[in-house]
């Protein structure tokens, strides 16, 4: 009796776990009763770790919708590499027409990409990139993180030279954090900006807030410039700065990257000083590439989407019409 009860409970729990993962994909799988002309695309997303990622997911879901001639099979891997590889394998087994991947990490993709190639399914990478040889995938579309860091750094040198700087880094080892840091220091070369401290805030609000509290306790009002690798950490730091009785935007200038809605709002309110956009709206480019690749047209191996920058005034203008 006990054993039966145990297995019943476990089955229930597993079912619960599966609903948790499958809900997002349900819309793609269940609604697929339409015409035969649709192109079936499997999209392996990283997860939903930030506002940027949500906007990116929305953009791809819209671009790969049935109205545009696609049938989307969506999977979010919760930022687990092995789950993402498993999702790609299942796309291959389902025999989709094309696969889109936003790779979580750079390494470990060779085998599964080769499987896709052998099955004759073209793979398009978006956002991050992979270390695997580039004949294993059709194309990559994404952003230049180093350029983003450089643009942010150039603004800092022009507008806040001679400042004492603290940096909130992204997740240690992620390509976004590494490249943004490289671009930033490249732009700062030869300037008189003095870096007091640099520490990871893991791209989260909570991380940004806690680390900024530490910085403020350590250096107090000596800090007059903050560079955060994304908006969320900058927003967390904003709380910490206000709690310390300082005025963000005046006492401490804040430069961030991403331009998600909350970040743009802070910029328009004069709390942030400058944002470099990291454009998440890659959907149309991806949809375009999928169509071209399937039609046998030749496409560029790398497409870099240009990033905009925003000052406070530009944010006020852009905010009402921004889609995310």
């Amino acid at each position: 009796m006990k054993k039966i009860l145990a297995s019943v409970a476990l089955v229930g729990a597993v079912a619960l776990a599966m609903t948790g993962c499958a809900t997002d994909g349900g819309s793609g799988g269940g609604g697929g009763g339409g015409g035969d002309e649709l192109i079936t695309v499997g999209f392996a997303q990283t997860g939903s770790e930030s506002g940027w990622r949500s906007a990116n997911t929305e953009s791809l879901k819209t671009a790969l919708s049935e109205e545009n001639g696609f049938k989307l099979v969506f999977n979010a891997a919760d930022n687990k590499q092995e789950a993402q590889i498993a999702a790609v394998r299942s796309f291959i087994n389902q025999g989709v027409d094309a696969i889109v991947i936003a790779p979580i990490t750079v390494d470990g993709w060779d085998d599964v990409l080769k499987e896709a190639k052998d099955a004759g399914i073209p793979v398009i990478l978006e956002d991050r990139t992979v270390s695997a040889s580039d004949d294993l995938y059709a194309s990559w579309v994404g952003l230049d993180f180093e350029k983003e860091g450089e643009l942010a750094g150039q603004w800092a040198v022009e507008n806040a030279d001679g400042s004492n700087l603290v940096v909130l880094e992204g997740t240690t080892g992620s390509s976004a954090a590494l490249d943004r840091a490289t671009g930033w220091s490249k732009a700062l070369e030869g300037s008189t900006i003095k870096t007091l401290d640099s520490q990871t805030g893991d791209f989260t609000r909570d991380g940004g807030k806690k680390v900024m509290e530490g910085f403020l306790q350590k250096y107090g009002s000596d800090i007059n410039l903050l560079f955060a690798h994304n908006d969320d950490m900058g927003l967390g730091a904003l709380d910490a700065i206000e709690a310390a009785g300082l005025v963000p935007g005046q006492d401490i200038k804040i430069v961030t990257i991403d331009a998600v809605h909350d970040g743009m709002q802070a910029l328009a309110d004069g709390k942030f000083s400058f944002i470099v956009e990291c454009n998440p709206l890659l959907g149309e480019k991806v949809a375009d590439l999928v169509k071209k690749v399937l039609a046998g047209e030749s496409v560029d191996k790398r497409t870099i989407v240009e990033d905009q920058t925003f000052t406070q005034d530009q944010a006020k203008e852009a905010l009402p019409t921004r889609p995310y």
Binding site: A6, A9, A13, A17, T19, G20, C21, S48, G51
Partner: peptide, 30 residues
């Protein structure tokens, strides 16, 4: 207590599924 599952396994279930439930509630957004 009732079913007699090992605590580490019993709570692991919710540890893995719980975040999925939380994401479901917020619709995947922050």
């Amino acid at each position: 207590a009732v079913v007699g599952v090992q605590p580490i396994i019993a709570t692991l279930v919710l540890m893995l599924a719980g975040r999925g439930v939380a994401l479901l509630i917020t619709g995947g957004f922050i």
